[in-house]
Design a protein around this nucleic acid. Structure first.
Lengths: 345, 345
DNA sequence: TTTTGGCACTCAGGGGTCTGGAGTGCTAAA
DNA sequence: TTTAGCACTCCAGACCCCTGAGTGCCAAAA
């Protein structure tokens, strides 16, 4: 029998157990559950239900004479059937928004700020994935000659993200040649997405006329070199120390595992990437991450976007036992706030 | 009686104790010391010396029947009188250098790489302080108009550091005005240190002619706005997880304290700043940091520089009990390598 | 005078035992 | 179908003891 056989009462009790456990981090017993959550049943009845829930894989007990602990399946059920994701009240929203109002921040700084704010409001570790170049819209390119064989290419995207890259050139170029290239590229490419830019470059280079126009050709080679091999996704992390508050990570080895994983970043990149195409809030629970390095950890993420579609994702990571109903709206609101700020500009 | 009363034998035994403790992290007793370090004295004699060293404040014992542990004073003595800072052998140097050879890295990436390499060779947490704008040399400035009232100012310094900043402008400016300003500033300011740049700006603005040349005036106002209120020092940290290997931080509270401090960064900025004017390797031991947040932690730092003098510092942080004699040369070599790479370009 | 062997003393840490309490499953009565 | 009762389980904390590495000090040896 699947989860559908859970009747109303089972569900309510499961929900109560999960919420109790989220709150106390202690295995919850039949008696304490009744006391703290005002249930109008006897301990024995609750125990029956609990036994049933355990059969269905929603609960386990650490040992015979302890209470029950929710499984990942339970959290999944809980999140999927969340009745009331309380929306943030206006004052909270305003408080969060006020963090950004102050400065005319440039994108990178704004995202850093977002991570910090997110983390401090949620009281869990905050994550923000910085937009990949290819998801953004070209606004401006600039070449700075550092030496006869080195150019610094500065890109500015529509959303204000600035990227720079060193490019080696084989031939020396005069200032005026560079200026011509710059002007030409800026005129030609403005408003295209980086993907379109690359497609355009490839198309133009295939055309014959480029073969004859040396300068033009070099312009495209340069910009292609600068756009290629993008860094593998940058991530901002803040509030790692919140993990220390969680009893489930009270053993040093656990924390070490987490901190190691954070330092490496590639796993987080992958996880944040998963949420990039979904809309609304995504929740990844425990082994759903598919990384044993993060066993016991869950993520709550949401995508944010600019004028031209999704840019990246942001969210928080913490133990499975997170107060989803209060954090989901925080993540949600932050993502939409960032989106609004980015579209606005 | 001061530390000068330590005779040769006392010093040798103290050194032996320190090195033994650095190695084992266990309080060292008279008998084990003799066994493991081949000392030609009896335990009783060693005990006498130990008692004396304890009187002088170089050792303490956690309790009556444990061995002795070096105090901060002992580490300070040890570092100050380090007989043989073994230089790195050539193969190690080459191995380290090889990390950088690969890519024509731009400064920020190179420093990140330096931090990673430093940390992995030293097996302690690596720290790199990114150069402050004001310590660098102007190479190029560029304005990108994001909206009628917002300009993105991109700075490139001689050493390849790229900084950008959003500046609000009250009057709209045409593209050609901007170009004039850009050209003028680039001609006028190239080769000056940022400090000189600011001095120049202030001087020129005081002169009468600027008052009459509207465009000129705006040029200076813009660059001043962009140069002002620099961010308070950026720091790269890598290898925080090495702290988990240290038995002195085996309690969760300790680690939490450390991670918190790292997240905050301001303390690290201060500590790294201290080494900026010294040449050679600096060692800050325990309470010398003057931050109780970092009690039990020591830093080994060295300054690195570019063509025009010191740019910043880098180093490692770990417990007081660090193998100074092998880490000092690693930090030293890394700093000089970075210096060489930066001067070279 | 300095070094060493001998001896009594100290104390942290590991292993064992005991007990209280919270929790369970099962059965029989309501 | 729910509940009261009961026997059973087992973790956590308290307590205790013992071992072993280490000390300080004194008197003998060098």
């Amino acid at each position: 029998m699947g989860k559908n056989t859970l009747n109303e009462r089972c569900q309510q009790i499961l929900e109560a157990i999960i919420e109790e456990y989220i709150h106390t981090a202690q295995p919850v017993g039949s008696k304490t559950l009744i006391q703290s959550r005002g249930i109008k049943l006897s301990p024995a009845s609750v125990r029956n239900v609990m036994a049933e829930l355990e059969d269905h894989g929603f609960l386990t007990s650490p040992h015979t004479s302890a209470g029950r602990v929710p499984t990942e399946k339970a959290y999944r059920f809980y999140v999927d059937t969340l009745r009331h994701v309380k929306d943030l009240d206006i004052r909270q929203k305003q408080a969060i928004e006020r963090q950004y109002r102050e400065q005319g921040l440039q994108m990178a700084d704004m995202l850093r700020e977002a991570c910090r704010t997110l983390s401090s409001y949620a009281q869990y570790t905050g994550l923000v994935m910085v937009p990949r170049l290819k998801t953004t819209v070209f606004r401006h390119i600039e070449f700075v000659k550092l030496s006869p064989h080195q150019l610094l290419v500065v890109f500015v995207t529509q959303s204000g993200l600035v990227q720079n890259k060193l490019v080696a050139v084989d031939e020396d170029m005069t200032a005026s040649e560079l200026e011509q290239i710059t002007n030409y590229l800026n005129q030609t490419l403005t408003g295209l997405s980086i993907q379109e830019v690359r497609a355009r470059i490839i198309a133009e280079m295939a055309e014959e006329k480029a073969l004859y126009d040396h300068l033009l050709r070099r312009a495209f080679i340069l910009s292609e070199a600068a756009l290629g091999d993008e860094a593998e996704g940058e991530i901002i992390i803040d509030g790692t120390s919140y993990f220390f508050e969680q009893p489930e990570f009270s053993e040093l080895q656990q924390m070490k595992r987490i901190v190691r994983t954070f330092e490496q970043k590639s796993i987080l990149v992958d996880l944040l990437d998963r949420g990039v195409d979904a809309d609304g809030v995504q929740v990844i629970i425990g082994s759903e991450t598919q990384y044993h390095e993060l066993s016991g950890c869950s993520l709550i993420t949401a995508a944010y976007s600019g004028k031209r579609g999704t840019l990246g994702t942001l969210g928080v990571i913490g133990p499975n036992r997170m107060p989803y109903s209060s954090i989901i709206p925080i993540v949600d609101y932050t993502a939409s706030l960032i989106t609004r700020l980015l579209e606005h500009e």
